[in-house]
Structures are given as C-alpha cells and as structure tokens.
C-alpha cells in the first residue's frame, strides 16, 4: 500500500510540475524563448494572490480571479518591456534577457512586497483524502485535475481554434506567420499572458495553506525536466512526462534516499531528462526536424 501511495502522490506532484512546465512550453512555442524566470513568475503570482486576499482583504473567490487577471497583465507588461524588441535576435540574447528578468523579478518582489515570509491563503481543504490506507493531499488532487483540464483545453485551443492555430503558426515560423498576416508580436504577448496565468495557477495549487517565500521559485527548475522530457512544443505530452517524472521522483525518495543517504529524489527528474535527451534530443513529443532530401 505504501508503494501505491508513493506512486499516486508522485504522479500528482508530477502533474503540478506539468502545470508549471506548461507555462514554459507555451512561451517557448511562441517566442522560442526558454524562460529561466518561470519560477519567478510563480512567486510573483503567489505574492499577487497574497496581496489581494490578505492585504486588500478580498474574499478568496474574488481575490483569485483578480489575481489571475493581474498576473495576465504582468505577463503582458514583461513581454512588452523586455522581449518585444528582441524578436528576431539571437537565442542567446533572449536567454540572457530571461536570466536578467529572473534577477529583476526577485528584486521587484522584494522591493514591493518586502522580505518577510508571508502566509498563503488556504484555497483547497487541508484535510487529505483517505481511500483505505491511501492518503492523498487535496491540493494536489484538485491541482492534478486542473492540470489535465488545462492540457486538454490548451491542446484543443492550439490545434482547433483559429487564434490557437495562429499561435501554432508563429511557433513554427515567424516569417511565414507574418507573411500570412499574423501579428507575431501579438501572439508572443498572448503566450506570455497564458504563461503568467498558468504560473499563478501553479502557485495557488502548490502554496495553498503554506508559507510564501522565495524558495517557492525552485519549483520552476523542478518543472524544467518535465518540459524537456515532453518536448518543448508538446502540451499534451506534459501530462505523461509529468507523471513519469513525479512517480520516479516519489519512488526514488522513498526507496533510494534511505540507502544512499538522501538527495537522489531531488536529482531523479534531471537524470531522467538527461537520459531521454540522449536518446531523443527533441523530447518524447517535441517537433522533430522534418527535412526533405
């Protein structure tokens, strides 16, 4: 039964990683920017939720939608200020800007919200769900459901709707997309809005009932292997990749950490990521280069 517990909890944590990784993937698809500041977007979203619910004293169910709208606006502003001028520039410049953005966001949050550890509102019931001997945290269970709904919804959006297909065209080729009348700038801005909203949703699931500190931004790096494992263009693949990474991490923590003396659970996602990248450099479901010869 312990084994099943580790598997289920690992899978649910993996789905949380997948939700954060979805922000990575949406931004990467549109702009080819690998956003190193994704974890900072999570804590920015967290602080916005804290501010609206505790500082402004709004009802939680009003504070959450307002926070999602505010984080969407923050994502839009970040794209307009830092990235819009870089369209067409080298990948290296883009990556360096996101590293700069990471440092800037940390400084900005410190300046605006202060260095103190803040309480995060209890959004999901703290009492876990018991099924026989199984113990499942409610935040992760509901969060897993939200992740699956988001993945299905975004896959449908990017493959079936005209605005989504426009963004997919931008993901494929900026020049071709603009030659068809698609505004590349608007698509990239929309991707940052979606990425910021997904990060805030990740913050709500991850931090519900916990303390809000800068350490929470580490979840951005924990989600990185899931994005690379799934392939940087695949939304649906994130679910499978997240579950595999989460379960492997859970089992490694439970069974290998006591033998080795700890930490193997932490590095397990990265070991899986390196393994899959050696075999399939584009990840499990990433776009492979189609070359006609």
């Amino acid at each position: 039964m312990d084994f099943l517990n580790y598997v289920i909890n690992g899978a649910l944590i993996g789905l949380l990683y997948a939700l954060i990784a979805m922000g990575f993937v949406v931004i990467y698809r549109a702009s080819k920017v690998f956003n190193f500041a994704q974890g900072e977007l999570v804590i920015l979203g967290g602080f916005i939720v804290w501010y609206t619910s505790f500082e402004l004293g709004l009802n939680l169910w009003l504070a959450i939608p307002i926070s999602l709208i505010a984080s969407a606006f923050a994502g839009y502003l970040i794209e307009r200020i830092f990235l819009t001028k870089l369209i067409g520039e080298s990948v290296f410049s883009m990556v360096m800007v996101t590293v700069g953005l990471l440092i800037f966001l940390r400084g900005f949050i410190l300046l605006v919200f202060g260095p103190a550890v803040r309480p995060f509102p209890i959004v999901f019931p703290l009492r876990p769900l018991f099924i026989g001997d199984l113990l499942i945290p409610m935040n992760l269970l509901i969060g897993g459901g939200i992740t699956i709904v988001c993945a299905v919804g975004l896959s449908w959006f990017f493959n079936k709707t005209r605005p989504g297909l426009r963004m997919t065209a931008v993901a494929e080729d900026h020049v071709v997309a603009s030659s068809m009348g698609i505004s590349v700038k608007h698509s990239i801005a929309a991707a940052w809005i979606i990425g910021a909203v997904l990060s805030t949703m990740g913050a709500i699931i991850f931090l519900s009932g916990k303390s809000l500190t800068f350490l929470a931004s580490d979840i951005g790096f924990a989600a990185l292997p899931v994005a690379l494992f799934a392939g940087l263009e695949s939304i649906g693949g994130l679910i499978l990749a997240g579950v595999i990474v989460g379960v492997a991490q859970g089992l490694a923590t439970a069974y290998l950490d006591p033998i080795i003396g700890g930490s193997i659970g932490t590095v397990m996602p990265f070991i899986i990521m390196l393994g899959i990248l050696l075999v399939r450099p584009t990840g499990l479901f990433g776009w492979r280069t189609i070359e006609r010869v």
Partner: peptide, 15 residues
Amino acid sequence: LRHMTAEQNLIVGGH
C-alpha cells in the same frame, strides 16, 4: 507550416 496538417495550413491562411 511543416508540423501542421494541410487543412490546418489552409485554415491559418484564412485566419
């Protein structure tokens, strides 16, 4: 648009 289907390419053309 190499990773999209022929019809998706056409729909993007008429976006």
